[in-house]
Amino acid sequence: MSAGAVAGAIAGATAGAAAAAAGARVKAEATTAKREAVLRVYRGDASGGQEVEYQVPVETGMVVLDAIHWIQAHQAPDLAVRWNCKAAKCGSCSAEVNGKPALMCKSRMERFAPGEPIVVRPMKTFPIIRDLVTDVSWNFEVNQRIPPFQPRAGAEWKWQQHDVDRAQEFRKCIECFLCQDVCHVLRSHELKHQFAGPRFLVRIAGLEMHPIDGVDRTPFLKDSAGIGFCNITKCCTEVCPEDIHITDNAIIPLKERVVDRFYDPVQMVWRAITGK
């Protein structure tokens, strides 16, 4: 065999010949022998669309994104979808699988009952561009309006790990915007002009809890980011693929900070007296 053929085997081997050659320690592959899954994928654009059904051969470990890629390569080359990393690290492949906001690259096909059609639709909170792709640029606009990090004057660039543990949780965010998608304030009530959404409350929490950040974003939180619109019903936390405790660790602590400033009568009187 030529040099490359093996490299190819390493590279290219799908089940086939290479699999048959070497016997030992095969994990029961036969159990998942060529079954087919039915995917109903939303096809359409701003002017309308409908679910189209595709039959996709299922292989072990397949995720919904693989199925979409298979459809692209074999049946619908123009099926629009966003993706990058295929490892739940970039937050591109957000969609709604059987009605639940999820990363397609993290949605395993085995999790669905055999024969059950898998419905894949674009995120419902944002205007559709085409098929599974929506226009999420609103989020980038919001991000721009958040007062950026600014170190306190004269602060020392030294702090302990436990000072940043909290903010590091928020900085895990991969900007998949699934939380924005599921948040009913944006989704059902369309208050995008008043509410920044969970993703950006997480971001503000990361800035506010930075040990040496010197900007005060509390008024911004209340009046511009509209934190009061959140009724802490926690859907954002339910869908976050990074397991960020959005409501408990970011939004509620921020709400408490807003209370300190704007709602707590004792603190307000105290500030008025001491002038702080």
Binding site: A3, G4, A5, A7, G8, A73, P77
Partner: peptide, 28 residues
Amino acid sequence: SPYEVHRALQECMGTNVGIFRIEKDLET
């Protein structure tokens, strides 16, 4: 379909210009 050509390209590069290279494969 461009997907076909892409598959062929990947196969060609994986087989012939992989980790270990040899004159004949590179020519191919």
